[in-house]
Write a protein that binds this DNA or RNA. Structure first.
Lengths: 215, 215
DNA sequence: TAAGGGGGTATTGTATACAATTATACACCA
DNA sequence: TGGTGTATAATTGTATACAATACCCCCTTA
């Protein structure tokens, strides 16, 4: 029997607030109050505070006596995030290639094909969603919750900056091709190749998003 | 003026529970209840739950309808942790060497000298404390909250397994020497060397803790 | 005898009431 | 006029009361 785990309000509030902050709904330095969230979300302070504690742990907000200080993700954070991802995201794909199941592979493939489809349709929002999901699936399928917990927060924090990237059609096409190469390596269970292609992909994404591209 | 930030009960409970779990006070699979914690800690459920949400985010517990399920850190987790630390901890030291201030350097040095002192005294508990603090200071002084947030949880999760390591006097001496080399490189602001020595140190620690040492 | 349903209990999940702390504005004094 | 102390208001921090849910045991019945 499938256990249909009910999602608590605390969890829902966390997801929503995290998403709003990481997509740039609030400015860094802005201060909210818990009571404002109570009226905005229609939920009592208890689950809101449980969510806020987690957001504080991720260092994207700070709970101060004046209210909830929005920190978000700075450009400097972004540089550090990519410096780290370049060093470990390949390891994630390496492990994934070694232990992925056929069923998981099918889900990864479907995500990739949707991404390719939306690239031809030039639908940036959906491209972004599938691009992001592709990476997240690899984190999940690599078989290590430690890798997942390490990479997931870094990946999520790039959200706001990723959108501009996929709106560039040339980059969107290139990104899809790179994902295809990573997928093929994983499907062939060629760990070394999957790692190599992933590192190259993160380097390219980093260069594009950080606007360090050589002309 | 120094702002003397008062530490909330939620924060204190988090620190205490995290420490108890990561030092192995509870067995993996064991189930506690919030009410038990209320009577143990003399604090109401509210701050306890805020702490539990954070521990759940770190994947060292799980909040289930039956109670608080202890997950802790498995041997497999440990392997993944070191695989990741080998790849990024050098980067942390690299940055640290580049931007550390004289004041921070003094604190790092004092910690190292205490470690060396306790090694001669053969005091495993204090060796462990100073060994751990040395790494944590580098995370702090590297100037990136992203690096800090990434490495700190990984480092903390090794706690339980580190103790056995420092009780081996030969390894304790070697570890102190390695820290000394890292410190000297950082003090000389030689980023490349600091990175090199740090990677070697993590590899050695990994080999020793994971008992993969070549005989 | 085995399978399925129902009630009771223990637990977490949520809302609300109360306490404590902090910042701010303002008055007062040097 | 500047600084300092105090009172007040707004916010977070904590405790408690209430709701919902899942599980377990036992009873019933085919």
């Amino acid at each position: 029997m499938l256990e249909h785990k009910t999602i608590s309000l605390a969890e829902q509030v966390f997801d929503r607030l995290e998403n709003e902050i990481l997509t740039g709904k609030y400015q860094r330095g802005e201060i909210l109050t818990e009571m404002k969230m109570v009226s905005d979300l229609g939920v009592s302070r208890t689950p809101i505070r449980e969510a806020l504690r987690r957001l504080e742990q991720e260092h994207i907000i700070e709970m101060t006596p004046k209210g909830i200080l929005i920190l978000g993700v700075t450009e400097q954070d972004l540089e550090d995030i990519f410096a780290i991802r370049i060093r470990i995201e390949g390891f994630s794909s390496y492990n994934c290639a070694k232990r992925i199941t056929d069923e998981e592979l099918a889900e990864l493939r479907e995500t990739l094909e949707l991404q390719e489809f939306y690239v031809t349709k030039q639908d940036p929002d959906r491209i972004k969603t599938m691009d992001s999901k592709f990476h997240q699936l690899i984190y999940r399928f690599c078989g290590s919750s430690v890798i997942y917990d390490t990479l997931m927060p870094l990946h999520k924090k790039v959200q706001k900056y990723r959108k501009a990237s996929v709106e560039n059609n040339t980059r969107a096409q290139q990104s899809a091709r790179e994902h295809r190469a990573i997928y093929e390596a994983i499907a062939a269970h060629d760990a070394e190749l999957a790692e190599k292609y992933t590192v190259e992909h993160i380097i390219n994404a980093s260069n594009h998003i950080l606007k360090k591209e050589v002309h």
